[in-house]
Each structure stands twice: as structure tokens, then as C-alpha cells.
Amino acid sequence: MTSATVTSKGQITIPARIREALKVSAGDRIEFVQVQEGRYEFIAATRSVTDLKGMFGKPVKSVSIEEMNAVIAARGAAAR
């Protein structure tokens, strides 16, 4: 397990091995995502949204914006 120490300014240095694995360098963004109470993952936010194209394959069924909005509204109403 790799560890880092928090400085008095609340900063940490990400160990070189971890930076290499995440392919991050100076100036890159890191996002912290809470996965459960008291537990976070940090994710390199270095990929462009266009890099995601084709990741999930072609959709089986096309859905219109109106259909999406209707489902979102129905789920929101059911949650209340």
C-alpha cells in the first residue's frame, strides 16, 4: 500500500508510481468521488469527453429528448 502525508496547508504529494499509473502530471485535474461514508476514490480527470465516444457501443433503441424528460419527470414524481 502506498501512502502520503498531508501538509499543514492540506496538500499531499501523489507518489510517482501512482502518478505514472494514472497518467497525470503537473497541472492535471484530479476528482475526489465519495464511494461510501468516510471513503473516497480519486480519479484522474485528464480525458476529454470525446475520448468516451464508442465506449459503450451503439444504442439498441433510439430515445428522444422528450422521452428522456418524461422518464426523468416520472421517476422524480415517484421519489416523492
Score class of each variant (00 low, 15 high):
V49S: 12
M68T: 06
E41Y: 06
E37Q: 13
I12G: 10
G57T: 01
G54K: 10
S48F: 04
P59H: 02
V60L: 07
V6L: 15
S62M: 05
F42T: 01
V35F: 01
V63Q: 15
A79G: 11
K61Y: 14
S64Q: 01
E37R: 13
I14E: 11
L52Q: 08
E37A: 14
T13H: 04
A4Q: 14
E37S: 14
K23V: 05
A73I: 00
A73Y: 02
A4H: 12
T13Q: 14
R29L: 06
Q34G: 00
F56C: 02
A79E: 11
V24L: 03
Q36W: 07
A79F: 12
S48A: 09
A70L: 11
V35D: 06
E41F: 04
I14M: 06
E66G: 01
K58H: 12
V71N: 03
S62T: 05
A78P: 02
A26E: 13
E31V: 05
R17T: 09
R29C: 01
M55D: 06
A26V: 08
F32G: 03
S64I: 00
I72K: 15
A16S: 15
I30F: 03
R29H: 03
K9Y: 02
I65R: 15
A78M: 08
K9Q: 08
K61A: 11
P15D: 00
K58V: 10
A78Y: 04
R29V: 01
I18P: 10
I18Y: 09
V49A: 13
E37T: 10
K23T: 06
T46I: 08
T50S: 10
A78W: 02
I43T: 10
A21N: 05
T2Q: 11
F56N: 04
G57F: 01
A4P: 15
R47N: 09
S48G: 07
E41T: 05
R17H: 09
Y40I: 07
F32Q: 01
V24T: 11
T5H: 10
V33I: 14
K58C: 10
S8K: 13
L22I: 05
I65Y: 13
R47C: 03
Q36K: 15
Y40T: 09
I65E: 14
S64C: 00
M55P: 02
S8F: 00
Q36H: 08
E31P: 02
K53V: 05
I30A: 04
G76Q: 09
A74R: 15
L22Y: 07
A74I: 00
K9I: 00
V6Y: 14
A78S: 08
S62Q: 09
E41V: 04
V63G: 14
T46P: 03
M1Y: 10
T13Y: 06
A45I: 01
R39S: 08
Q11R: 15
R80S: 09
E37I: 01
L52D: 09
G76K: 13
A44I: 06
T13L: 11
A70D: 14
